[in-house]
Amino acid sequence: MNTIPELIRTVPLQHYLVLSTCLFFIGMIGVLVRRNIIIVFMCIEIMLNAVNLLMVSVSAYRGEASGQIMVLFIMAVAAAEVSVGLAIIVMMYKNLKTTNIDLFNQLKG
């Protein structure tokens, strides 16, 4: 196990930052591009995970624990959000029988 922290010193922090930023925007593009509500929601999860990776890497490189605690809370929040979100989606599906977000457009103007 002692060899693993060596990696942190060989790969610059910047690379992790770029990786997680990249993931974040992939998630964002997914949110913008997809129309299936569940997949949109999954893309938001990718965005959250990107943030998690960002925070964990900084926390690990800087030896500062609060970032990882934050990640723990983000996961907790994500779990809560997912449960509520899926409940909403199921409720919506019961009424409208579709998962295309653009068909939920009765409220407008």
Binding site: L7, I8, N52, V56, M75, L86
Partner: peptide
Amino acid sequence: VLLNAQFLALVNVVVYAGAIMVLF
């Protein structure tokens, strides 16, 4: 794991890949 954040690695597997994705 590479970042030596073992606890979070575990939690990530359990919570995300385990619970959340199963829900999905």
